[in-house]
């Protein structure tokens, strides 16, 4: 499934997105990179139809989410937000089954198909063991994987993830991104992933977008986007980009430098 974003502009009190355009093809894993406050989450919320852009549009297979019903969007897009606090003792299984909401009736119970989709999603995210555990008792990283399972239980054609690996240990960071990569390459699913993990993005993404203050700095293959000069200027940090000896993709190494704030005394 393709996503076509053309010249999106959006502002709260200050402009957040100033004309962003890109295209994500079927089977691609598209990474959205940029510093805090660069407009990444806003961009994603526009794609999933939660915010309306001031101008421009995001089309999913040629259809504008603004003109689709919530149910129609939910059958196509699987979305995991940056953070969700859960106050009620709902079990992980019940949470994952929520991903099947748009497939069933408004009342009644989940079908056998719904159950098997949920079980599959929990198996691939390694969360089966939490099935009967209340979600509010899980750790941050465990809950994040359960949230991913819920999005996968939708059987989405577009998977949209806002910082999916932020709370995960290194082993699960790799496992989660590898899972998303395999799902995109083995099916028609495409994925849009916001992340601060530049090295993981370089390894797993098929293409990437670099944002700064709502401005599109670069879009294209990771090796073209993640160059030393671009990353230095976008993140305003000293760093070196060379080649990852294992994968051949760009590798980012941070360099410590003297802080601009030299005096820490009050």
């Amino acid at each position: 499934m393709t996503i076509e974003v053309s010249d999106i502009r959006f502002s709260y009190t200050r402009p957040v997105l100033r004309g962003v355009s890109f295209k994500v093809g079927s089977g691609e894993l598209f990474a959205v990179l940029g510093p805090n406050g660069s407009g990444k989450s806003t961009l994603i919320k526009i794609i999933v139809g939660m915010l309306k852009p001031e101008s421009g549009c995001a089309l999913i297979d040629g259809r504008n989410p603004a003109s689709m019903s919530r149910r129609d969007i939910a059958r196509v897009i699987g979305y995991v937000a940056q953070e969700s606090a859960v106050l009620f003792p709902i079990t992980a299984m019940e949470l994952v089954l929520q991903g099947r909401f748009a497939q069933g009736g408004l009342i009644g119970f989940e079908s056998d198909r719904d159950i098997s989709e949920a079980e599959w999603a929990m198996r691939v995210t390694e969360t089966t063991e939490f099935a009967a555990t209340p979600v509010n008792e899980l750790s941050g990283g465990e809950r994040q994987r359960v949230m991913l399972a819920r999005a996968l239980a939708v059987r989405p054609r577009v998977l949209v993830l806002d910082e999916p690996v932020a709370n995960l240990d290194i082993s699960h960071q790799v496992k989660v991104l590898d899972l998303v990569r395999r799902l995109t390459s083995e099916s028609e699913m495409s994925a849009i992933v916001v992340t601060h993990e530049l090295n993981l993005a370089a390894d797993f993404a098929t293409s990437a977008l670099l944002l700064k203050s709502g401005e599109m700095i670069a879009v294209g293959k990771p090796q073209d986007v993640m160059t030393e000069s671009l990353l230095r200027s976008v993140f305003e940090t000293d760093l070196v980009v060379d080649e990852n000896p294992a994968s051949g993709s760009p590798r980012v190494t941070l360099i410590r430098r003297k802080s601009e704030i030299s005096d820490l005394r009050m």
Binding site: R70, I73, A74, S84, I90, L106, I107
Partner: peptide, 25 residues
């Protein structure tokens, strides 16, 4: 209330989440 019980299960976790999963919040 009962006919909305399944939608409420999703709203209970978060209104935005519920919206993206197909609830007319």
């Amino acid at each position: 209330v009962y006919v909305n019980a399944r939608s409420l299960n999703l709203m209970m976790i978060g209104e935005q989440d519920a919206l993206t999963l197909g609830v007319e919040a």
